[in-house]
Design a protein around this nucleic acid. Structure first.
Lengths: 207, 207
DNA sequence: ACCTGAACACCGTTCAAGT
DNA sequence: ACCTGAACACCGTTCAAGT
């Protein structure tokens, strides 16, 4: 039984199974992935070029669901801050759904079209709000850094913050209070995002 | 020649050599590390418990140089925002010196004493500035996420942002302007940090 | 105590062979 | 076109053996 009538594999099938592995184990391996797909390891290479390719496919699957607002209409009068907020929240939510995936592609270059399209929309919005090109790049970089850092923070919430015997009194106080886990990470993200948006708003008003 | 009179290895020697490998290649491997140290791979296990241990040692070496300010004196009157700025800048600078290291330990839990001490100092400063414990934790999380995200951004600056054929006009404009590489990442970090600090300042003033 | 060499289980990838 | 099995170079780790 060498070639089946209908193919057992496809890039999408491979990426989804790898995504499921990463969600539950934090990593994936070509042989283990092949086993889960009931296929030999070498079969995968008929559909993907290698492990890096699979990771890039996973990124695409994660980000593809993000709905980007249409920025065309609201040149200067529209709620451009609301547009940026919506993008940042969606972007972060998409990553937070697969938190253990993030460390995997911090090492790789972004080539995913959805991600690049999102950068483009952000650039349009900042430009329309009156940001010079250089300031636009800075603002996008700040947003991107914060979203990615926040998603990373959500990836290992309990272990990083809880049960730290070396922690001093002030840190212990802070840790005891408030919610832990995903809620803490989400709340902190919202808090920091509003600080950044307020700063963007003041900058636009000043120009 | 089984056992030399003076040991050829130590945790520090191993970590430094691994750091040099990561700085220049972006990764390291036990056999290659052993070869650079002119030692057999199994020798390393007399000094470290494994690869994860080496990564934790590298984190310690990277962060150990951070000089933490004494927060005791400036309870409410002192320049607490300046203290936080100094910590964040130092923290980010330490990571940015070894940018390719960052993806390696995003997957691991922080146990490094220097890092925990830094969190404690931040907690003291925010508390003294009038932040309730819950707000203190939120502020630290925001800072930490932004610093880590910014350092990550610095890890792959050119590839991520330049030469993206799919990029639209607004993004191209932003990319053409201003500095590229480390300067861009550094400037964006400073920009975002000031936005966050301004937000912290307004929150403290309001309470 | 510290280094060596052999060994083990595993990884990612290639490739001729099958249909 | 698509799957298989064998093969390759490599990885991280263990462990008995040496001094």
């Amino acid at each position: 039984m060498a070639r089946p009538l209908t193919p057992k594999l496809s890039p999408a099938v491979i990426a989804d199974e790898a995504l499921a592995m990463v969600d539950q184990a934090g990593e994936f391996t070509i042989p283990a992935l092949a086993a889960r797909l009931k296929v030999s390891a070498s079969s995968l290479y008929n559909h993907v070029s290698g492990k890096a390719d699979i990771i890039e496919l996973m990124r695409g699957r994660t980000v593809a669901g993000i709905a980007l607002p249409e920025p065309a209409g609201d040149a200067a009068g529209g709620d451009w801050i609301g547009t940026i907020r919506a993008i940042a929240v969606e972007y972060r939510r998409a990553y937070a759904e697969h938190p253990r995936l993030i460390p995997l592609f911090t090492a790789y270059t972004v080539r995913d079209p959805s991600t690049l399209r999102m950068y483009e929309v952000l650039a349009q919005v900042f430009s329309a709000a009156g940001f010079a090109p250089r300031r636009t790049l800075g603002a996008i970089t700040v947003l991107d850094s914060f979203v990615l850092g926040s998603a990373l923070d959500a990836a290992a919430p309990e272990q990083v913050w809880e049960a730290v015997p070396g922690a001093g009194a002030a840190l212990q106080d802070a840790l005891r209070d408030g919610p832990g886990g995903p809620d803490r990470a989400e709340a902190a993200f919202r808090y920091g995002l509003e600080l950044l948006l307020a700063g963007f708003g003041r900058e636009a008003a000043a120009s």
